[in-house]
Design a protein around this nucleic acid. Sequence first.
RNA 1: UGGGGCGUCGCCAAGUGGUAAGGCUCGAGACUUUGGAUCUCGCAUUCGGGGGUUCGAAUCCUCCCGCCCCAACCA
Length: 582
Amino acid sequence: MSEEDEAAIGSDARRGSGPGGAAEGAADSAAADFIRERIAADQASGKWGGAVRTRFPPEPNGYLHIGHAKSICLNFGVAEEFGGSCNLRFDDTNPVKEDVEYVDSIQDDVRWLGFDWEDRLYFASDYFEQLYEFAERLIRDGKAYVDSLQREQVGEYRGPWNEPGKESPYRDRSAEESLDLFRRMRAGEFEDGEHVLRARIDMTSGNMNLRDPVLYRIRRAHHHRTGDRWCIYPMYDFAHALSDSLEGITHSLCTLEFEDHRPLYDWFLEQLEVDVHSQQIEFARLNVNYTILSKRRLLQLVEDGDVEGWDDPRMPTLRGMRRRGYTPEAIRDFCTRVGITKRKGTVDVGLLEHCQRDHLNRVAPRAMAVLRPLKLVIENYPEDQVEELEAINNPEDPSAGTRKVPFSRELFIEREDFMEDPPKKFFRLAPGREVRLRYAYFVTCREVVKDAAGEIVELRCTYDPETRGGDAPDGRRVKATLHWVSAAHARTAEVRLYDRLFQVEDPSALEDFKQALNPDSVEVLRGCRLEPSLTGHPVGANVQFERQGYFCPDTTSTAEEPVWNRTVSLRDSWARAQKRGG
RNA sequence: UGGGGCGUCGCCAAGUGGUAAGGCUCGAGACUUUGGAUCUCGCAUUCGGGGGUUCGAAUCCUCCCGCCCCAACCA
């Protein structure tokens, strides 16, 4: 979106390079998708005078999710790449479902994702007066009429796919009569549902959208922007096509289910002889396995309390992902890697996770945190001594520098880093075995202390003072390096580990998608110990807990009671090997 | 059943008549003070199927099969 970015948009700067020079890790010069090819062709042929104007047209009836991100990246991305612009337009033609809560959150989410519509914020409702004029014109031209059939009758007359529909007895109403009725509809003289304005197209068309589609319905509902000024509201097809035209949209990109609406879209623009006949192009919407991307169903989860809200970290909403710690860079990278085609498919969440790890690996500072603490006492380490050991903040980024981490006689290590009776390939701590404590010393386990119940409560170890920093002067090697935290200096925190919200790949295929909800989608760990440098870490700021994953403080986190979310775990080849081996 | 689309590796996805890119996943190895990262190597004789055209087809023709969307006064 910046000037530099636009300047950098060469003929093949198709992918990646979102705002802020985002997706560096993404494919460099990948082939353009069919939409970009088409736009490039239009630009080359001089159609539209080389202009490219797109729009992202959400209906403010829910929160944006990862599926919308694909569309946002496409629309804003294409505009940016071709030196055009992208509008943010709310498709707010159905007041009973829409709310300002959503228009606010949507703007916030689009901005967070990294896109800027500058002063081009529009609402279909801003065009209500113009749309009304267009409607009157259609009536005057004999291309639309007021129908007074009952709602159910309209459906019956439309007929089934395989037979032609029946024309409404009101279809031949004179233009004058229809015009009068339509004006009175607007004036509020009729009850909801009493009349409807329909286009006069073709009741025998194989395309149901052309069987005299409804243009306006009477709906006495308070609109979030126009209040009670209107009691008739335009339908999507009519409003959308004309809003696009009014805004001078050159390429109107939408999802596949609108493919057979295109003839209707074109019909409106042709009949009304508008200046700009926008081109609608359809692409496949995004699907991700183990989740659900349906505003209706997501709303249900929220309303039924299956999740904490729209921003629950397990939700595929942009809000939820943001709270969980997902970054705009990763989401944008994901969207470009997924591509744009007309094939419906389902992308593996693994790709999303990979994109997130890829980004965070490069930018997230490292720290040590023990999630399931096991006390480790170094018997030969001085009782009251404390050393400040130097640790690297990010091995992938030398400029991130180093920090000091306190080390003392009593530490905590991860419970799963010790096994009393280790299997063959287990390299971590075990009785009599020596391992390295990261950035500290080599320690050897001398004794395992258990409580009455036989539970391991403490490990007694000895350390080798010669190995300070983590290297043995005699060249001695260890097979494992463990993270740790000094017991006296550690900060206690709650950590939430998230797993997929659903346990089946395609919950929407089920009769009741809720049956597939994963009962273990969140595991709350209390009493976790964090290294002191993490104290007061800002909400949402990502850090890698070494050997474990990427985490960030939750929105509910406070200085007194820190709460961290795991965004995504690190790849764990040990865990995978174990799983594989049964 | 009428209309509109889509079928290339487990998942995405290039390919547009010249002899199957890439990413993710997965497997093997190297390296490693994160069993992370990185690095090497491997992973479709075959493009939903059958015919045909052609010196040559995933790409052209043809027939068939499969899947998705559409009968809201939702978007």
